[in-house]
Amino acid sequence: MKPISSITDHNYLELEQVASYFFKKQDIYSIEPIGNGNINETYLVKLNTSTLKSYYILQKLSKKAFEDISRLNNNLSIISSHISRSTIFTNNSLPSPQLHCPKLLSSRISGNNLISFKGEKWRVLTYIESSSNYEVIPEHISPYEFGVGLVKFHLLLSDLPLQNLEYVINDFHVAHKSLETYDSLPLNKKLSEISKENVKRVLALNRLVQEERSKAIIVDQCIKRKKLNLLPVHGDPKINNFLFDVDSNKIIAMIDLDTVQPGYLIHDIGDCVRSIANKSGEESSSLDKVFIDLEILDSFLNGYFSIDNPFFTPNDFSYLAHSIRSLPFELGLRFLNDYLYDNTYFKTLYKDQNLARAEVQFKLFLSVDSNFTCIEKIIQSYRGSM
């Protein structure tokens, strides 16, 4: 056993006990935190045995985010099996490299891929080695590659029957539902409980929400009129959910597949743009540095539309700019709602973090809105390529 300094001895012993449901204790060399996810707790398990792979992912799943955690593993098993059987790469329908998928490990004790420990649910996934992910786009990686990776993922799942996937999050990326939650909040009560400085910050965001809310629900209205096709989508294609091969700098996997469920392509594209085209990142400490980079957007779309996607329709083109605008508004509202509900959904390191996150997303929304006509022109320039 090799405890890691960032984990207390007590916590390490608990993690080791959980991991021992999947591995023999004498084979566990170390367990350490990995990643910066806002929902689940994720750890890298290193083994010192030659009979198994060296690294695995151990996760504690969030009961706050997911109503029925068993659905996550059911979906992941279906997705993993579907990807492993797909011939879309071997028959040259898609360019290499092939996309891989983390696989669930079964407990050596119960045979189940989900175990309970002290009231929490845990699982182990295979680790995709020789890969890297990023919080912001590094200089040696082109935004083009994110577009290629996302369209390959969409096409890889395009023949997966929707009825095989369960909904893990209801009303995901539905802006008017987040607005309903916000409208039902006892805002005045919350304002009486926070500092004067934070009152000013919340009231500024409140004014923005009330003035701009109609722009956030345009895609919702389009969906209600059944103008978009329901397809398997990732649901959370933010920058750090793309894994790059360390040698080729090509995407070899998309991870954090808990949000894969029936959804809409333009939600995935809008969410990916929201994440990669803000070079200051989601946790930016300077709002002056938060804006949409149109060159990154153009390069990303160039990658996405470099591969023919027959499922991307004229209506998708017509509403894509609206999705790119609504996704930072919707996430900003979710962060603000969580702050006003005392941080019960997203993980936080400090009390006001969700308020700061909300400010970043709403600033990005304003940047997208001010560049909306230009964004529409960039999108329409790719219309002839499909």
Rank of each mutant, 00 (worst) to 15 (best):
I4N: 11
I4W: 11
S5L: 12
H10Y: 07
E14R: 15
Q17E: 13
S20A: 14
S20F: 03
F23C: 04
F23R: 05
Q26P: 02
I28N: 10
G37S: 13
T42C: 13
L44W: 07
T51R: 10
T51C: 07
Y56F: 12
Q59A: 06
L72H: 02
N74P: 03
L76D: 07
L76I: 11
S77W: 08
I79C: 03
I79W: 02
S80F: 05
I83T: 04
I83C: 03
T87A: 14
T87M: 15
F89R: 04
T90H: 14
T90C: 13
N92T: 12
K103S: 06
K103A: 01
S106W: 05
R108A: 06
I109Q: 14
G111L: 12
N112L: 11
N112E: 12
S116L: 09
F117S: 11
Y127N: 11
E129H: 08
S130A: 13
I141N: 02
Y144H: 15
V148I: 14
L156Q: 01
D159G: 03
L160V: 12
L162Q: 08
N164Y: 09
L165E: 07
L179P: 06
T181N: 14
Y182V: 01
L191I: 08
K196S: 09
N198S: 13
A204Q: 15
E211C: 07
K215F: 15
A216D: 09
V219M: 10
C222Q: 09
C222G: 03
R225I: 03
K226R: 15
L228N: 06
L230N: 08
P232H: 06
V233I: 15
D236C: 13
P237A: 12
K238L: 10
N241A: 06
D247A: 11
S248Y: 02
N249H: 12
T259Y: 00
I266C: 00
D268T: 04
I276T: 02
D288E: 11
K289D: 14
K289H: 13
F300W: 01
S306Q: 08
F312L: 09
P314W: 05
P314Y: 04
S318A: 14
A321H: 10
L333C: 03
Y339C: 02
Y339P: 00
N343K: 09
T348K: 15
T348Q: 15
L349K: 15
Y350I: 05
Q353L: 09
N354E: 10
E359T: 05
L364T: 02
S370R: 15
T373S: 11
C374M: 11
E376M: 10
R383W: 04
R383F: 06
G384P: 03
S385Y: 08
